[in-house]
């Protein structure tokens, strides 16, 4: 840490904290999760960047969705995402959450994840290299600095539409809405 960074950290300590301490929720989706163990262990060492895995969504602030999302997984993803404390960041990892990838004509796999939960950024590729996670993390730093990583705010504002989409694909949801929905309009 040099002098400029210290001044920056003192000026906006929250931003500093959110930037250099990403806690990723343990959530295994699809095949992309196989890239995560090398990332957090000796070979690539994500702890250099402050990225560590945590076991519960209540403690996490980064959500990596690593691979195809079936309908059953989508249900779990929505519940996990809604339990995470704000500010929270989501990154879609691999090509399957982006547009379906190789499951583009599957009957049970959702194609565009950002129709159901908000996404801050994407890592394209099938599979992306572990380095791509670090690129994503450093990119998130820039976005947080500029105040652009605001997908969780979008979720609050557009919650009505997100909920509608979730119900369209999953049927009746058994949990109450996270934010109040104004029915008139």
């Amino acid at each position: 840490m040099d002098r400029e960074q210290v001044i920056k950290a003192l000026k906006d300590s929250g931003k500093w904290g959110h930037k250099y301490s990403f806690w990723v929720v343990y959530f295994c989706t699809g095949c992309g999760i196989i890239e995560i163990p090398p990332v957090i262990t000796s070979r690539w060492d994500a702890e250099r960047f402050g990225v560590i895995p945590v076991a519960t969504p209540r403690q996490a602030n980064l959500f990596l969705i690593t691979g195809y999302v079936s309908l059953k997984t989508l249900r779990a993803i929505i519940r996990t995402y809604e339990q995470m404390p704000e500010p929270k960041y989501t990154v879609g990892f691999g090509s399957c959450p982006i547009n379906g990838g190789m499951y583009w004509d599957s009957y049970n796999t959702i194609k565009h994840l950002d129709k159901y939960i908000p996404i801050d950024g994407w890592i394209a590729g099938c599979m992306p290299r572990p380095e791509a996670i670090f690129i994503a993390v450093t990119h998130l730093w820039t976005m947080i600095d500029k105040g652009m990583a605001d997908a969780y705010k979008k979720y609050r504002e557009q919650y009505k539409y997100y909920r509608r989409n979730q119900e369209m694909v999953l049927g009746e949801l058994e949990w109450p809405p996270l934010y109040p929905i104004d029915e008139d309009e």
């Binding site: 300590s13 929250g14 500093w16 904290g17 959110h18 301490s21 402050g50």
Partner: peptide, 8 residues
């Protein structure tokens, strides 16, 4: 850093 983040 972690504790500062958690407070925010």
């Amino acid at each position: 850093i972690d504790i500062v983040k958690l407070f925010h």
